[in-house]
């Protein structure tokens, strides 16, 4: 069974907010109608976003690390927002696992937003219905677009390629390989929601060097003491001979 999802690589995300703006741009002009921007030029502007990039600091100065953390609907395999919906407006698609809201059925009771542990559903202040990331369902199947653009707007926009898109249930897919080989993990596994979106952790390349690897040994046999061990200050073979 197909389960489309995003895999977000925290190792490469630079927090540029390009995914946030391209998401807003695509979805505000999409089939679901504009995403509200209330009071945009006033004192307290507020609006609907399907995707946010947040910033966290790990550790204590000077040993700190900045983690930019994009956050959108995780399209859970067991979404808690779906069974609580009284109208059936909140649903998970059988064919590709995308969690969607039916705009014509939603009554705006906000119950699904209480049931979601991640806070990724927002009530649109203008339409008064629940809105959320659609994984650009109106884009990924659009055959009028060139094939390499049939991806969510955020994935297309990411300049560092921190966002991968694909079927996480297909073991051969790029996203499955990334999760498998680069330590992909899920958010808040304690609630049993089985998020389809995964995150790749910060990774560092380290090698371990032992002290004896730093000392030049002309004759490895010395180590086994088959020959008398010369003094460490004695000239080495390179210093006494020249080629």
């Amino acid at each position: 069974m197909t389960q489309l999802a995003l895999v977000i690589d925290l190792n490469v995300c630079v927090g540029c907010q390009a995914c946030v703006t391209s998401c807003k741009e695509w979805n505000t002009s999409g089939t679901a109608g504009p995403m509200a921007d209330m009071n945009p030029f006033g004192k307290d502007p507020t609006g609907t976003f399907f995707n946010r990039v947040q910033t966290f600091e790990v550790g204590t100065y000077p040993n700190t690390e900045t983690v930019h953390f994009p956050k959108s609907c995780l399209h859970c395999e067991d979404p808690p927002c779906v069974p609580v919906c009284p109208t059936g407006a909140s649903y998970k698609r059988e064919e590709d696992g995308i969690v969607l809201v039916d705009n014509d059925k939603c009554i705006g009771c906000k119950y699904c937003s209480w049931a979601c542990p991640y806070g990724v559903r927002e009530l649109d202040e203008h339409q008064k219905i629940m809105t959320k990331c659609t994984l650009c369902v109106d884009r990924i199947y659009d055959e009028s677009l060139p094939e390499n653009e049939r991806k969510p707007a955020c994935v297309n926009a990411c300049p560092t390629n921190a966002r991968l898109f694909g079927d996480v249930n297909d073991p051969e897919s790029e996203v499955s390989a990334a999760i498998r080989e680069q330590g992909g993990y899920q958010l808040m596994p304690e609630w049993g929601t089985k998020p389809a979106n995964h995150y790749l952790p910060r990774r560092k390349a380290r090698i371990t060097i032992h002290e004896d690897e730093l000392i030049r040994a002309d004759n490895p046999l010395r180590k086994e003491r088959h020959l008398p061990m010369p003094d460490a200050d004695d000239p080495t073979l390179d210093e006494t001979t020249s080629w």
């Binding site: 966290f56 927002e122 808040m188």
Partner: peptide, 30 residues
């Protein structure tokens, strides 16, 4: 749930520096 499980980083000291927007949203109101 802790901030550690929320963002998936295992460290005793985690601190949020930005929530991604400066004024209110549904998340901060509800």
């Amino acid at each position: 749930s802790t901030l550690g499980t929320a963002i998936g980083v295992r460290h005793s000291k985690l601190e949020q520096k930005s929530q991604g927007f400066m004024t209110g949203s549904f998340n901060t109101r509800e």
